[in-house]
Computed example of a mutant assay.
Amino acid sequence: MSLTLADARIVTPEGVHEGWLTIEDGRVTHVGHGAAPGPGLRLGGRHVVPGFVDVHNHGGAGGSFPTGEQDKARDAVALHRLHGTTTMVGSLVTDTLDGVSRAAAALAELCEEGLLAGVHFEGPYIAKARCGAHDPALLREPSPQEFAGLVKAARGHARMVTIAAELPGALDTIRMAAAEGVIAAIGHSDADYEQTIAGIEAGATVATHLYNAMPPLGHRAPGPIAALLDDERVTVELINDGVHVHAAMLRLAYEVAGPGRTMLITDAMSATGLGDGDYVLGPMKVHVRDGVARLAEGGSIAGSTLTMDVAFRRAVQELGLSLPDAVQVTSLTPARVLGLADRIGSIAVGKAADLVVLSDSLQVDGVLKDGVWITEPS
């Protein structure tokens, strides 16, 4: 199958140019400037950006990855693909070890089908003082041997684990994860600056939703935020939904980390795409009101109802990022973190034709996955 997209504004790492591109057998084969050399689908000057890459997502459309219910998980993937996310990691939450293992095994099948890019273990190795929407009764101290069992359950698809660096056994578990090719992320942590640095030295390379579920910045006790932002080895996740983090703090993190170390995530949960109501996040009951998800008991924020197209749009319209920089933090940087930047994350010859067509107002008007339309431009 061959397809040419013509009369488009193509967003690449080098900038935005008016031109065209050709797709054959699911890959981009040509990217050109000006008028296309032959017939094609004319986009009328609409933008074409690479498919979004979300490394932290708990579900949507009523489906919750932590439950391990595969049909509902497929609904969640389909919902996020409609919003331009063509690559996503399925994130779990704290549960019993058996519950986490079963969910990981179920998601491994979706990874093998190409629907997910891996499994993220967000819990149970997190701090009680910063557990947020996780059940504190089910938290555990990190153990390399125990985590090896979870990695085995994921059948080669364990992609990331969030660990509180200050917990006993954390540093050894971070080392083990890094040695196994699993991204170690510091988050849901009450660590101080020095403990966070120790986690980074042990091999942690990601900050799980920076600012959220960790001590705030302090001028005498800088805590984990300063350590994670300041270290060139760490890429920081940010939830850009207007609820989790104030825009000024988002801009501050971006100014320090830049597009190469910043990646926007959704942290989406099952209510995404459905609206207000009562839901679950793992074993926890969640109320969604006015689009904000909070625990039924205690009121902690419990994930989000965000989609990546909204995060992208807010990055440009609220934070002031250029289109190429907004593309980098929603596509290329997370693709690099996942080790997939040679295949996805930017528009380039040889890469997968995972593409999103955006209107002038940056609304999704078409999505391609591996060169096949998920939704065609109107």
Rank of each mutant, 00 (worst) to 15 (best):
M1Q: 10
D7L: 09
R9F: 12
E14C: 08
H17S: 01
T29W: 14
T29D: 11
A35R: 15
G44C: 13
R46V: 04
N57M: 01
G60Q: 13
S64P: 09
A73K: 07
H80I: 02
L82T: 04
T86L: 08
T87S: 15
G90Q: 07
S91H: 04
V93T: 02
T94H: 11
D98P: 05
A105K: 07
L110I: 07
A117W: 04
V119T: 00
K128N: 03
C131Y: 11
P136D: 00
L139I: 00
F147K: 14
V151L: 10
V151A: 10
A158V: 02
A158E: 07
T173M: 14
G181D: 15
G187Y: 12
D192T: 03
Y193P: 06
E194R: 14
A198M: 03
A198E: 06
E201A: 13
A204T: 00
V206G: 05
V206D: 04
A207H: 11
A207L: 06
L210G: 05
Y211M: 07
M214F: 09
P224I: 03
E237D: 03
E237M: 06
H246E: 05
A247G: 05
L252K: 01
V256S: 04
A257V: 11
G258W: 09
M263L: 15
T266K: 05
S270E: 12
T272A: 09
D278C: 03
V280D: 08
K285S: 11
G291K: 04
E297H: 11
G299D: 14
S304W: 12
M308R: 08
A311N: 02
V316P: 07
Q328V: 00
T333G: 08
I374Y: 08
